[in-house]
Design a protein around this nucleic acid. Sequence first.
DNA 1: GACTGTGAATAGTTTCACAGCC
DNA 2: GGCTGTGAAACTATTCACAGTC
Lengths: 222, 222
Amino acid sequence: MARLTSPRNIPEATVSRLPLYLRILVEVTEQGEKTVSSDRLAELSGVNAAKVRKDLSHLGSYGTRGVGYDVEILMLQISRELGLTSDWAVAIVGFGNLGHALANYRGFTERGFRIAALFDADPRKVGEKAAGLSVRHMSELKEVVGTEGISIAIIATPAAAAQEVADLLVEAGVKSILNFAPQLINAPSDVSIRKVDLSMELQILSYYLGRTKVLDAARLVK
Amino acid sequence: MARLTSPRNIPEATVSRLPLYLRILVEVTEQGEKTVSSDRLAELSGVNAAKVRKDLSHLGSYGTRGVGYDVEILMLQISRELGLTSDWAVAIVGFGNLGHALANYRGFTERGFRIAALFDADPRKVGEKAAGLSVRHMSELKEVVGTEGISIAIIATPAAAAQEVADLLVEAGVKSILNFAPQLINAPSDVSIRKVDLSMELQILSYYLGRTKVLDAARLVK
DNA sequence: GACTGTGAATAGTTTCACAGCC
DNA sequence: GGCTGTGAAACTATTCACAGTC
């Protein structure tokens, strides 16, 4: 199925920054501040002020010239746009080190993502507990996705299992996948996939380390 | 210090894909294939073939028209460009769930990143063990960074501690930081920082979930 | 005939700069 | 005077399309 443009279409780059602004706004609220300027948001988020304004303009006009943005209203608008007005149920597949850590990660629940089920293919792990849940066997996946109303799944399996797991998830009706396995996942185009590859991040840092070294060397030669 | 352009300057977007190609090439080698075309690399990496070719052209001309790329040579060139020809020593700061999981993560060592030290500010965690290492107290950080030759640090602390930890790391001479704390980190411009915000990833997925819902609804109305 | 390397075209993103409003 | 909202300009990245090479 082809992806249609949504009613109000927000650029990808902007979407990926909205959660950041939301986090900052929560912090600002906790400080008791009622309004915030694009300059202040820029400072707190590490994003250029013009970019903040352009990003926020995609949500509509919720700022007041000369004053700034009403923090409360802006939070609401961003939450609404991101679909965070109700909580989402999340499943974690793969109960190794990473899956275990993610199950216990406070940040998810704090931001309205309820970890609703844990799965593993290894019968020895089935029944282990974390975050008040027992690990279930993969064979239960389809059923549990239905009963728990799971919309988002996190893949934290070894690379070799990732595609198979993704297929099962798609079959069960999951439309959003966050993939931690270092493995490309193919899925129908109506399924959103994001990936986090931890080793890749270090390898990218390694590149820039190299560049700095070259600079240092150049400086020494001078 | 201002960031200078490096000798052969590779676009950021390309740099961030080089580790991906490298991973694919390792897989291809294991299959015993000696050459690989941009089409095949595209298929295996989920990147468009023209983009693959343009990316690789930034390394120089290591392909052969009518044949493809020599897998061995290409791996070597990418490794060299990414500065992965020797292993890097990595420190993990923060020994909570996530820090613990990262310490045991096989992917890092498999790709040449040696976890060389673990730190935590909590005296009760000091002495705990993971991956053959004992957790050390933050007060030892500066010294250990020197003796272990640590170039890259991973911050896996709560948000509130992240900036302070980053300051200590910078003071100790660390030039690359991977930040898992949901908190902006400020550092001198010669320090590279990458961030991974797990909740943000789910929030972004939530946005696209919302879009699909709208589509489904639209279909139902029709 | 198969495949790379790359200019040219296109698309997407960021930044500037300022008119317009409070 | 302070600050938003936004066209226009600048930059970055992607994709096309094909000449050039093996």
